[in-house]
Amino acid sequence: MNSRRDFLQKLAASAMALPLLPLQNLAGSAEYANFYNTPYDGPVLRVAIMGLGSYGTRVAKAMQDCKRARLTGVISGTPSKIKAWQARYNIPEKNCYNYENFDQVKDNPDIDAIYVITPNGLHHDQVIRVAKAGKHAICEKPMAVNAKEGQEMVDACNQAGVKLLVGYRMHFEPKTLEVIRMRKAGEFGKILFFQGQCGFTIGDPTQWRLNRELAGGGALMDIGIYAINGARYMTGEEPVWITAQETKTNPEKFKEGVDETIQFQMGFPSGAVASCLSTYNMSHLDRFFLNGEKGFAEMQPSTGYGPIKGRTHKGELTQPHITHQTLQMDEMAGIILDGKQPVVDVSGEEGVRDLKIIDAIYEACRTGDKQQLS
């Protein structure tokens, strides 16, 4: 297994072979049902994808089912990929750019937003260039390699008057939103504990995810961010302290600055605690567990491409699977075009919050000290 993408794609394989259930069956999602089952002729967000790798391909395919977002451009350093995408998605030559000339997109009215799906270490400069070109930016997570760079990206987009959104697809996933609804409604009672386990055995040692300069770290940046973000949206709180321990069994494969396995703990203002695991050296880890005084929620798989599976003290979660990236892009179109407020934030500020926690986890591993967060 070469990457998190491969891992999540394997989890999704069985789901992709199944027909989607009617959207009307979604608990509490009459808005989705009405939207996807009625004709739409309103404004559409015109999107260029930057980075035409496996995940960019997945997003492009999912966007074919979107009603409010449309793929209208591409940015890549590989001419052969551009040609293939032009043919597959009917993209005109004038909407195709490379990494050297994509600043010219500022003069292209066919593109409203650029979705940056490149290695983590490139996000900072690329998003700032997108902002300077006057286009909205959607950035894959983690949005940067540290909180300082993330804040600079937020500031650049604010200064340019464009939106910066982060590709938190789970923030729109129906089963996830049902657990959040139950928590907000008090159905779990006082939240006591969260556990997040995220990991797989990574393959090719030469890939960019094991290159510190491009990845910004190791498993924590790639897969552990799901547990960090999940702890926050499942508990509904921001952590106030962090402890962490790193384990490395293969220093040849996992060089200095590239983490193999990190266990980390977080404490929240209410007294709730989280215990999480992020690893590139163990497979079959994709589980969230939330415990409260009145009940619980368990999701496994919790963050794969789908279908997400889960249960609570009230029974199985039955919301049907909808392609995550389709929902994400339609919802992001609503945010950009209409100022719609999502249930869970997907702004650049949200991305910075996760990066501050990542910074603190790495510092806790380095020093062995508990890190206090303001």
Score class of each variant (00 low, 15 high):
residue 75 I to M: 07
residue 75 I to H: 04
residue 76 S to T: 12
residue 76 S to N: 08
residue 78 T to F: 13
residue 78 T to V: 14
residue 79 P to A: 05
residue 79 P to D: 05
residue 80 S to A: 15
residue 81 K to T: 10
residue 81 K to H: 11
residue 83 K to L: 12
residue 84 A to V: 11
residue 85 W to T: 09
residue 85 W to C: 05
residue 86 Q to S: 12
residue 86 Q to F: 04
residue 86 Q to Y: 05
residue 87 A to W: 07
residue 87 A to T: 14
residue 88 R to G: 07
residue 92 P to A: 12
residue 94 K to T: 15
residue 95 N to F: 00
residue 97 Y to M: 05
residue 97 Y to P: 02
residue 99 Y to W: 11
residue 100 E to N: 13
residue 100 E to G: 12
residue 104 Q to M: 05
residue 104 Q to K: 10
residue 105 V to I: 15
residue 105 V to Q: 00
residue 106 K to E: 09
residue 106 K to A: 15
residue 106 K to Q: 13
residue 108 N to K: 03
residue 110 D to N: 12
residue 111 I to P: 00
residue 114 I to F: 07
residue 114 I to E: 02
residue 115 Y to V: 13
residue 115 Y to P: 02
residue 116 V to N: 01
residue 118 T to A: 07
residue 118 T to R: 01
residue 119 P to T: 11
residue 119 P to N: 04
residue 119 P to M: 04
residue 120 N to C: 14
residue 121 G to R: 11
residue 121 G to M: 12
residue 122 L to F: 15
residue 123 H to N: 09
residue 127 V to T: 08
residue 131 A to E: 04
residue 132 K to W: 06
residue 133 A to K: 01
residue 133 A to I: 04
residue 133 A to C: 02
residue 135 K to H: 07
residue 138 I to C: 03
residue 139 C to L: 01
residue 140 E to W: 11
residue 140 E to S: 15
residue 141 K to E: 08
residue 141 K to A: 06
residue 143 M to F: 09
residue 143 M to P: 03
residue 145 V to C: 09
residue 145 V to Q: 03
residue 146 N to P: 05
residue 149 E to L: 14
residue 150 G to K: 08
residue 151 Q to E: 10
residue 151 Q to I: 04
residue 151 Q to P: 02
residue 152 E to R: 12
residue 154 V to R: 01
residue 156 A to V: 09
residue 157 C to Y: 04
residue 158 N to V: 11
residue 159 Q to W: 07
residue 160 A to P: 06
residue 160 A to R: 07
residue 161 G to T: 09
residue 162 V to F: 03
residue 163 K to H: 14
residue 163 K to T: 14
residue 163 K to L: 12
residue 164 L to R: 01
residue 165 L to D: 08
residue 165 L to E: 10
residue 169 R to Y: 14
residue 169 R to H: 15
residue 174 P to V: 08
residue 176 T to F: 08
residue 177 L to P: 02
residue 181 R to H: 14
residue 181 R to G: 10
residue 181 R to P: 05
residue 183 R to P: 02
residue 184 K to H: 13
residue 184 K to S: 13
residue 185 A to I: 06
residue 185 A to Q: 14
residue 187 E to R: 13
